[in-house]
């Protein structure tokens, strides 16, 4: 299990990436993260909603009410133009960071 403080700074980009693929709602995102990481990383819901708030405030994502579940209306998130541009930048930055860290920690 990955320590949460080490991945914290990357949560925004992970979630943006998932929303880029298609519009998603909260539980779907947390489930998708567990699924793709084979349960090696599970995001806490409290953290997830904090990220949503932050991203929405920065206008990187938008929300709308969509499909109905048993409980009520799901709140879906959609990436904005700004969000896409931001994500692109983050991906480039990440590649560079990875190379640099690898220089020291790999092999």
């Amino acid at each position: 299990m990955i320590r949460s403080d080490i991945i914290r700074g990357h949560l925004d980009s992970i979630i943006l990436r998932l929303i880029l693929e298609k519009d998603r709602y909260g539980y779907e995102i947390s489930k998708e993260i567990s699924l793709r990481t084979d349960n090696r990383f599970q995001i806490k819901e409290a953290t997830l909603y904090a990220v949503f708030q932050r991203l929405e405030k920065k206008e990187l994502i938008e929300s709308y009410l969509g499909g109905v579940s048993q409980g009520g209306k799901r709140k879906y998130y959609k990436i904005t133009m700004l969000g896409k541009a931001y994500l692109n930048e983050i991906v480039t930055e990440w590649k560079e960071l990875k190379e640099i860290i690898d220089l020291f920690l790999e092999g």
Binding site: Y27, E45, Q53, S69, Q70, K75
Partner: peptide, 17 residues
Amino acid sequence: IAIKEEVLENLEEKVLD
């Protein structure tokens, strides 16, 4: 109010799941 609704909605879905 909005976020409470969202949290509750998602938690319920998780429970059903």
